[in-house]
C-alpha cells in the first residue's frame, strides 16, 4: 500500500512551485514513499505528554530596540535583480489578490 500517490506528489509540487516532468514525478513518488515508510518508525514511539522541541536550547526572548538603522543603498538592494525598472523589481503581471 503506497503511502503517497503520484497525484499527491503533484499537488505538493504545485504548493512548492515546482514543475515535475513525468519521469521526475514518478521517481519522486517512489522516493517519497520510501522515505515516508522509513520515518514511520516514529509511529512506534510513545510521545504522549511529551512537549515538542522547537529550539534545541532554552534562550531568552531576543528583542531589538526600536531604532531605525541605515538600510542598504537602493543600488545594492536591487543590484541582484534579474529584471528591474529603476529601483523596483519587476515580475510578470500580478493579478490582484491571486496568490501565485
Amino acid at each position: 500500500m503506497a503511502r503517497i500517490t503520484r497525484e499527491e506528489v503533484e499537488r505538493i509540487a504545485d504548493l512548492a512551485r515546482l514543475t515535475l516532468s513525468a519521469e521526475e514525478a514518478q521517481a519522486l513518488t517512489h522516493d517519497l514513499d520510501t522515505m515516508l515508510e522509513y520515518v514511520q518508525a516514529l509511529d512506534g514511539l510513545d510521545t504522549q505528554n511529551v512537549e515538542p522541541t522547537a529550539h534545541p536550547l532554552p534562550v531568552a526572548t531576543a528583542l531589538r530596540p526600536d531604532r531605525a538603522r541605515p538600510s542598504l543603498a537602493p543600488e545594492e538592494a536591487v543590484g541582484n535583480a534579474p529584471e528591474r525598472e529603476g529601483s523596483a523589481f519587476t515580475v510578470p503581471k500580478v493579478i490582484e489578490g491571486v496568490e501565485s
Binding site: A68, R69, G86, A88
Partner: peptide, 15 residues
C-alpha cells in the same frame, strides 16, 4: 532596523 517610511522611491528602505 529599516525605517518605517512612505513616499520614497521603491526599495529605499530595505536590507
Amino acid at each position: 532596523g529599516c525605517a518605517v517610511r512612505y513616499g520614497d522611491p521603491p526599495n529605499h528602505h530595505t536590507c
